[in-house]
């Protein structure tokens, strides 16, 4: 599959501080790629370089076949969408006026405004001033703003922070629909459930370096102890290794109707991050 993004040996130094060091990864077209890491791990610096807001100290970056020298061109900017923790709206203007501005800046048809408001579940807030919206509603307007021009590649920095579970589910469905339509999504999140559910691949970033990269389920399997946790109706908890010789034992438990629950030992992405870096992913 063709790459939407190719990053090789990326390094960024601010004065004496190295923010990212030797970061390399590819993002395939149509993929949802998650960059996971705690605050200060280098996620924002990486996104800023990938969107042309910062220049790297060394290393190569190619996004949508554009070299970094062309990241400030309208051609490049009109093909990407960005939602970051620094994204902002004009408080005194209505939701519609905010989106209209960006529709015009990106040469998108104005009909897109109502389509996007439907997507982010904000049709009723169309004519409300942004200052009157809750934090979660503002976040959804920002998401609509990032997607209004149907970009080929979207950078989403914590897109569902400040949202309630109902709206998170709505946004997830919207992102999956967007991805099915061919949009590549580059996402950073602290929500491991979100990363597992949405991402085709994730990279763990810590101290400016990529510590692990792979498909969430493959990583969970890789860091698993390959055992089954079995709970029986007589409140016994058994740990049975996932070995061929234990098949009969499990079969026997199921056949005799003793099994209350049976779970694999696959760790969550948060547990894997903790295991690799010794840090909680917050």
């Amino acid at each position: 599959m063709e790459n939407a993004m190719k990053v090789t040996g990326l390094r960024k130094v601010f004065n004496q501080h190295t923010a990212i060091e030797d970061v390399s990864f590819n993002v395939k077209r149509g993929e949802i790629f998650g960059l996971l890491g705690p605050s200060g791990s280098g996620k924002t610096t990486t996104i800023k370089i990938l969107t042309g807001e910062l220049l790297q100290t060394s290393g190569d970056v190619k996004v949508l076949d554009f070299d970094i020298a062309f990241f400030k061109t309208p051609d490049f900017k009109s093909r990407i969408g960005i939602l970051s923790d620094n994204s902002s709206l004009y408080d005194r203007l209505t939701v519609y006026d905010n989106l209209k501005l960006f529709c015009k800046l990106y040469d998108a048809p104005l009909e897109q405004i109502d389509v996007m408001l439907e997507e982010v579940n904000l049709k009723d807030a169309r004519n409300k001033a942004v200052s009157k919206l809750s934090k979660g509603m503002k976040q959804r307007v920002l998401l609509a703003k990032a997607l209004i021009h149907k970009p080929d590649l979207v950078f989403l920095d914590e897109p569902t922070s400040a949202l309630d579970p109902g709206n998170i589910a709505h946004i997830h469905r919207g992102l999956q629909k967007l991805n099915e339509a061919g949009t590549t999504i580059f996402i950073t999140t602290h929500d491991m459930e979100e990363a597992t559910k949405l991402c085709d691949r994730v990279a763990f970033l810590d101290k400016g370096r990529i510590q692990e990269l792979g498909n969430p389920n493959a990583l969970r399997y890789k860091y698993s102890t390959h055992a089954f946790h079995v709970e029986t109706f007589d409140d016994k908890r058994l740990v049975i290794e996932n070995e061929r010789e234990n098949a009969d034992e499990i079969k026997e438990l199921i056949a005799t109707g003793k099994v209350k629950s049976i779970q694999s030992d696959n760790p969550t992405l948060g547990q894997i991050f903790l295991k690799i870096t010794g840090k909680e992913l917050v």
Binding site: T51, E53, P74, D75, K77, S78, I82, N86, S87, S88, L89, Y90, F102, L105, Y106, D107, K145
Partner: peptide, 9 residues
């Protein structure tokens, strides 16, 4: 908000 404008075309 200037950042949003600068990131647009």
């Amino acid at each position: 908000t200037l950042r949003g404008l600068m990131l647009s075309p």
